[in-house]
């Protein structure tokens, strides 16, 4: 009987022996390099040798604003006050805020996790559906392995691909940052202003990993969703289309209906956990981080259950 490791090796072979996979990986690396290049270009173009003067002027403008808007939204005022504090900190410690450090590259690369998600969705969509369109599903299932095991090996292989892309993004962005800015910024602290108005220094790598972490939540959900559609309809194009559609319109849809109470039960309303970070608002005021995590877990379990039922219980007739 098959052991899981061998099934996983088979699935990996089928992913990485396809030229398409390497095209996708190349595309991701190219995008990362392009992003890094543009960031550097932007920095060089905007000369910031007189940054001290700029920051001082900025603070004066902010002070003016606060005086003019004394009655305005307290959050708004608070944000500006925090900005002034940060600027003062920069001046005090002689840190040029406009100068990029290698961590800026890594943090910006977190935005490209959207691309990683799309690429993984494409792979996930093919995982089950392609076996049907190739006709290989029959030989795949007529083997000494339960369908549950076959499906699990496919899911784990998909997640392995996502992990590979994530590590690749992080490494390429880190390397590009180091190449363009040097390792000087490696130990720079991450600055943030806490609720009580005190400036905190924290580790940059922790901040980057946090950014990645939040992006991975949506990656996990969309990829699992694509996997489910792939198992349900046995069609890759449908799985890709539905997942991308939801990724693109999900957010605007929730915004559009955010005045209704039921919106909080939608996947899209919960998928972006950065909304619970300081300075952001959730879609609905009554939503909490715990609620969103519970909703996400519920959706995840539902997706897995539906995939499993449809993959293991249905006849393969065609």
């Amino acid at each position: 009987m098959s052991n899981f490791r061998d099934l996983l090796r088979n699935e990996n072979m089928k992913i990485y022996r396809r030229p398409r996979t390497w095209l996708m990986i190349g595309f991701l690396i190219l995008s990362l390099l392009l992003m890094s290049g543009l960031m550097k270009y932007d920095e060089v173009r905007n000369d910031s040798s007189d940054w001290k003067q700029q920051v001082t002027e900025e603070n004066q403008v902010l002070q003016q604003e606060i005086q003019n808007n004394a009655t305005a939204d307290p959050d708004f005022v608070k944000n500006m006050e925090n900005e002034i504090k940060l600027n003062e900190y920069y001046l005090e410690h002689n840190l040029n805020p406009n100068e990029l450090s290698m961590w800026d590259y890594v943090n910006t690369s977190a935005m490209l996790i959207l691309l990683v998600t799309i690429l993984t969705v494409i792979v996930a969509a093919d995982m089950i559906a392609a076996e049907f369109s190739w006709g290989t599903i029959k030989l795949l299932l007529v083997g000494p392995a339960s369908r549950t095991k076959v499906m699990l090996s496919k899911y784990v292989a998909t997640m392995g691909f996502a992990l590979l892309l994530l590590i690749l993004s992080f490494t390429v962005a880190f390397a590009a940052g180091a190449a363009l800015q040097g390792f000087g910024g490696l130990s720079l602290p991450h600055l943030s202003v806490s609720a009580d108005g005190i400036i905190h220094e924290s580790s940059m790598i922790a901040d980057s990993l946090q950014q990645y972490g939040f992006a991975i939540v949506s990656l996990l959900m969309y990829v699992t969703f694509a996997f489910m559609i792939s198992a349900a309809f046995r069609s890759s194009s449908m799985a890709i289309a539905f997942s991308l559609l939801f990724m693109l319109v999900g957010n605007s849809l929730t915004m559009l209906f955010s005045s209704y109470g039921w919106v909080k039960y939608l996947l899209f309303a919960n998928i972006d956990l950065t909304r619970y970070l300081a300075g952001n608002d959730p879609i609905r005021p009554e939503m909490t981080l715990t609620f969103s995590i519970m909703m996400l877990v519920a959706y995840y379990v539902l997706f897995q259950l539906v995939s499993w039922l449809l993959f293991t219980k249905r006849d393969v007739a065609a």
């Binding site: 098959s2 088979n10 072979m13 006709g135 290989t136 029959k138 030989l139 083997g143 000494p144 392995a145």
Partner: peptide
């Protein structure tokens, strides 16, 4: 089993296809 036409993974070599099916059996 050979169910209908023998559908194989076209992007793999014949040998890789056999390795794929062999791995499932211990």
């Amino acid at each position: 089993a050979i169910v209908e036409n023998p559908e194989m993974y076209k992007f793999l070599s014949g040998y890789q296809n056999l390795v794929h099916f062999a791995r499932r059996h211990s």
